[in-house]
Computed example of a mutant assay.
Amino acid sequence: MVFCSKIDAFFVNFMMIAILLLGLASFWPLFFFNKIDLFPFLLLTCTFLIPAGVILWSAFSIKYVYSQDFLLVQGGPYKSRILYEDITEITSSNNIFSGYRILSSRDAIEIYSKQAFWGSVMISPMCKREFINELKKRCPNMKIREKC
């Protein structure tokens, strides 16, 4: 079973600002030259396109996959496998700037696990209620803190 990540306007605006700042930083040297050669222009373009592509790929290809033994959280090149037996509790969260997170919305769920990188991972499934119900089936001993 696969769940896609919810994408909210705040996150889209945040990504647009990040890409704009990356573009300004990448193309800043062009403002100091009267004549622009092809090689420097291509080099600066690559210094923009490659990081921008990785950022956009990571941000807008997020999915959460239920496997037989673990939950796979994937966003671009980043993957996390969370064993169902290691999940201790879940809680709702709207703090997307701290901790380990693979999400694209402020309407998030924090999954606490014994083996997680910082003790938990924050995700933002599109169908939150269905996602939690499926997780309950696979992790009957986990605690649900607050209203998710």
Rank of each mutant, 00 (worst) to 15 (best):
L30Y: 07
L30K: 02
F31D: 09
F32T: 13
F33L: 08
K35L: 07
I36R: 03
F39T: 08
F39G: 00
P40T: 02
P40G: 01
F41R: 01
L42Q: 03
L43R: 00
T45N: 00
T47S: 03
T47H: 01
T47N: 01
F48P: 00
F48Y: 09
L49D: 02
L49Y: 01
L49W: 00
I50R: 00
I50W: 00
P51I: 07
P51W: 03
P51V: 07
P51A: 06
A52W: 00
G53P: 04
G53W: 03
V54G: 01
V54W: 04
I55D: 00
I55W: 01
L56G: 05
S58A: 14
F60C: 11
F60L: 13
S61V: 07
I62G: 08
I62W: 09
K63H: 15
Y64K: 14
V65C: 10
S67P: 03
S67L: 14
S67G: 11
D69E: 15
L71S: 13
L72C: 05
L72Y: 03
L72K: 14
V73Y: 04
Q74A: 11
Q74W: 01
Q74F: 04
G75E: 06
G76E: 04
P77W: 03
P77R: 04
Y78C: 03
Y78L: 12
K79S: 10
K79Y: 06
I82H: 04
I82K: 05
I82L: 14
I82T: 07
L83Y: 11
L83M: 12
L83R: 10
L83G: 02
E85V: 11
E85S: 14
D86C: 12
I87R: 10
I87W: 06
T88Q: 15
T88M: 12
T88A: 10
E89R: 15
E89N: 11
E89Q: 15
T91G: 14
S92V: 06
S92I: 07
S92M: 12
S93D: 15
S93H: 10
N94P: 02
N94I: 10
N95C: 06
N95T: 12
N95S: 13
N95M: 13
I96H: 06
I96M: 14
S98K: 15
G99A: 11
Y100D: 07
R101P: 02
I102E: 01
I102C: 05
L103R: 08
L103K: 06
L103E: 06
S105K: 07
S105V: 07
R106D: 08
D107H: 11
I109T: 12
E110R: 15
I111Y: 02
I111S: 03
Y112V: 09
K114M: 13
K114G: 07
Q115K: 15
F117E: 09
F117N: 08
W118I: 10
G119S: 10
